[in-house]
Design a binder for these strands. Sequence first.
DNA 1: GTGAAAGCGCTAACAA
DNA 2: TTGTTAGCGCTTTCAC
Lengths: 343, 343
Amino acid sequence: MTSIEEVARQAGVSPSTVSRVARNQTNVSTVTRERVQRVITELKYIPNAVARGLKQARSGLIALLITDITSPFFTAVARGAEDAAREAGLSLLLGNSEEDSDLEAKYLRVIGERRVDGVILVPTNQAPNSLVRSLPPEIPIVLLDRSLPGFKADVVRCDTRTGTFVLGQHLLGLGHRRIAIVGGMPNIPTWPERVAGYQAALRESGVAAPPEFVIPGDYNRDGGTEAVRVLLAQGERPDAIIAANAQVALGVLDELVAAGCRVPEDVGVATIDDPFPPSAFVPRLTLVEQPGYGMGEAAVQLLVARLEPAGRAEPPREVVFEATLRIGTSCGETTIGHDDVMR
Amino acid sequence: MTSIEEVARQAGVSPSTVSRVARNQTNVSTVTRERVQRVITELKYIPNAVARGLKQARSGLIALLITDITSPFFTAVARGAEDAAREAGLSLLLGNSEEDSDLEAKYLRVIGERRVDGVILVPTNQAPNSLVRSLPPEIPIVLLDRSLPGFKADVVRCDTRTGTFVLGQHLLGLGHRRIAIVGGMPNIPTWPERVAGYQAALRESGVAAPPEFVIPGDYNRDGGTEAVRVLLAQGERPDAIIAANAQVALGVLDELVAAGCRVPEDVGVATIDDPFPPSAFVPRLTLVEQPGYGMGEAAVQLLVARLEPAGRAEPPREVVFEATLRIGTSCGETTIGHDDVMR
DNA sequence: GTGAAAGCGCTAACAA
DNA sequence: TTGTTAGCGCTTTCAC
């Protein structure tokens, strides 16, 4: 692999001069610059960022660790983060923890050893310990989607409590009375938050929210199928189901269909997430949309602020985005098209 | 940031000894090991992989550059590659070029400067030049999904020519006769390949494949809407449309619905890709499925073989996967459920 | 405008 | 079993 020394030798200059040319610094005479440039091209010299990183103690690299790469929400987050990172002159290292704490720890370890300039993390659970153990304390962290009680860090999240509350009102307005909410992981704050919004909506209308209609599970497809199995095995069947996220909603739909239930005629289904793209499909999913792209951007911006010497010591900031109800047809809505943003 | 020297000083040993302990080497006495280990934990020492990488001239890092992170196919590829990389003790750096050559070049540049051990690339176009200019020649490349004529490298791809051929036969069997194919980029080999399969199927049945039914476009949602607009503006409306990938299919569906066409009653729609997850939605999309996960795994395996000194000089290998027809209901199929793999 | 020299943090070869 | 030394490829003073 061509090194800076080799270029220097070939061009008859010192490594410093090559370095100056390679980084487009001004204090080089035109004639030298051209000569060096020619040798660089000739030898296909590509600067070694590993060596540079060692010297400069910064990498120009940030990491984003998400928990589910197949989720439209986290995909949107990744796109937003990527664009913002590029804007800021940083590269983005993406990792996928699959909602697995061990895997998360491994990624954090690798990320930390590589001395990235910062980390955007969707934490898998409530144990900041592993986090602290895997990452050098100097590396700034921005938490995304989920805060970590007792852990001081910037947070970007979405107020899905209110979102779920509004969704609950919507379902009640459609006449649903036996509403279930399913599929979130109890040790991830977004689940109790959504349950709280759901309960508040029902309470406000004096509708019962029996505990057997609140079914936790994994934040994935199986979590949805499992929950529906439990629901259908119980005495009273719900007339609407809120899935904790898009993956869960798919599992819910799978299992309802398998059980011969029609959606929305027999059971309405709604979810909380960024929308899956399908549009012309019937029914269109009613959902509470989280602005993933914007959240990814915001996380990078918080991180960039932390990278400045001035931002180092600032107190942690929290950026909270609003969720938006997108009305589809999956809960028996008849007023199709009055909010057609799902396309 | 705690360095190895600092640990050594505190523990009263040499840096080498710390290094040995940190890497779990055997030739350290138990008592020393314990003492050093204690200091490591105390000082939260995390080895600097940048320095190690500089010394060892290998990073344990490979990069995967995909063109569309919202595509279910590439998402599956990423998951497969990630699992295989972890299996092989490598970390995966993920990048998203958005089908943009400039962005691709930038990523390759960053990746190359970081001296990753290898690159898995979904090339955006047919210009290997930029590729060669952005990446040190020593870094092995595996091309994924698309080969690059005239560029010698391992390739993992899927035979979508045959897949599209079989899909064509399926559509003909359903009685469709005015079949269009839309939305692929002419300078990406997967498009002509799919068109060829389509044409072969029609030819075999003596059905015309008029050029105005072959409409290229961008490999994204807009490509689909655009194509449908063109199709509908033309004289004769197709009775079935093959979308070049899942994103395009969504655009096609969008625009058909907007134009008041029912799917599948007025126009059938099929696509080529990994499946989007939605299942209970009606219609379910008929599609030719590419095994993204397996392809990602295979790409990493090829790369790993190249990393061995023995594999360096081996001639390029090509791994071709088969595509599978998954029958849904979006083309007017009545035999629902005889191939229900789309769930 | 250019070069010499030191050093970032680590590991590998060698010596003790 | 442990330590010493050199050097990976670069940037950064500091001279000239």
